[in-house]
Design a binder for these strands. Structure first.
Lengths: 228, 228
DNA sequence: ACAAAAGTGTTTATCATACACCCATGA
DNA sequence: TCATGGGTGTATGATAAACACTTTTGT
């Protein structure tokens, strides 16, 4: 009796971008086919027969938004029978992070049907995508504290204040500047560059730092754990 | 072109049981249909058209092993195109924990094709099930330190030594008895019962404790975090 | 000169760790 | 009485938290 299974498999991606101006944003596309025609939805689509799930998300993201992803991991699989009103679709959701350059690039190319929405002002979403976004936000909050994923959302070099603001925005709580800096620096994963921040408005320009991804990977294999 | 998708969706369950004698064990079934006929595999099977993923795992576990699960959560979705040599099958894996009584019960009912295997001596497994088990073990190790899941593997009331041994076995490192007890008790989630351990062999019988699941849920909603 | 943001250190409390002896029971 | 495992406290070091003034830059 389970032989005539008619379930489809799709992937969906929750891609977060961040700027200190707008905070956390999510990449969405406008659907132009039913169901939920004209509604905003997560980028994604049906998995092809010969591709892996990761290949499917990457492909869909490329096709639908043109955004290239630096960090991508599986989030959760959503499989309620009624989550798609037409067919049964099980969706494997992924969770991605991009740096501000990808973010800004996209904002410029505005002819397309893809757009960034700040988390504070998300539109109504198709299917159960609001649930998926909520799950992704929880995951991001969790990961920020026990994995160095915050750097994936910042430029390659960044002033400390950006990192602070990121943590404060996403975790939604105030952070003591001095203690935070001490903790982060003690991890030994940041390198101060010789450059200074370009002045944006007034105030003293900050020193720019760079994250040592390789150093982290090395330490990680020795049982090192990031912790904020 | 993605319209003639032919991918099936299955669920698989990695169910762990624990006794201080045998350590951590996994529930397996013997396959009696190809592929991998006569090999050991995780309980699981194709999802029916009208049921949710959770319903599917629960049903399969019931049908194939008769074991009832206290704790079940989604683990990861495995979707490599070649993971099943015949058809493309995407499998949503779940991660479950049972108490020793379910464990012992099953051991008695030995006519069936389901059996517990100690992690130390797993047989060769069908498909990519060895990978799935490895992923589940990682998850268990992680969860043990930041969520009170250890209690799901013990009897309703248990002596402190059982909890200690569980942590030592699963995390595979020695633990200081006094410090461990202090830490756990400070969480305020354990209640000492008036009973004492029934003597198994020699030595002083230990006090029996009970885990306060409701109390934990209440605290959890107030932003409390378990941490060992 | 002033407004805005960045840089920096010390004190205190809390928590983690290391460590050893006495007690209850069964044989 | 002996062997086995359970119960318990203290001292020390490490880490987290609280907290404010000075410096650099643009206007």
């Amino acid at each position: 009796m389970p032989e005539n299974q008619s379930i489809r498999v799709s992937v969906d991606a929750v891609v977060f971008g961040y700027t200190s101006r707008e905070g956390l944003s999510v990449l969405l596309i406008k659907r132009n086919i039913p169901p939920f025609r004209h509604a905003w939805a997560l980028p994604g689509g049906l998995v092809h027969n010969e591709e892996s799930l990761e290949e499917a998300v990457t492909r869909e993201l490329q096709e639908e938004t043109g955004v290239s992803i630096r960090y991508l991991e599986q989030l959760y699989t959503f499989g309620q029978p009624d989550r798609d009103p037409r067919n049964r679709v099980v969706s494997v959701a992924y969770f991605g992070l991009v740096r501000p350059d990808a973010f800004r690039l996209q904002a410029a190319t505005d002819a397309s049907e893809a757009a960034w929405f700040p988390m504070k002002s998300l539109p109504a979403l198709a299917f159960d995508h609001a649930t998926i976004v909520a799950t992704a936000l929880e995951r991001l909050r969790g990961k920020l504290t026990y994995a160095p994923v915050g750097f994936e959302l910042l430029d390659k070099t960044f002033p400390f204040s950006e990192l602070e603001k990121l943590y404060q925005t996403v975790l939604d709580r105030p952070i003591d500047r001095r203690n935070f800096k001490k903790k982060i620096l003690k991890l030994g994963l940041l390198e101060k560059t010789s450059e200074k921040q370009r002045h944006e408005g007034s105030g003293r320009p900050g020193d720019l730092y760079r994250f040592h991804a390789e150093r982290y990977q090395a330490l990680q294999h020795q049982g090192f754990t990031f912790e904020i």
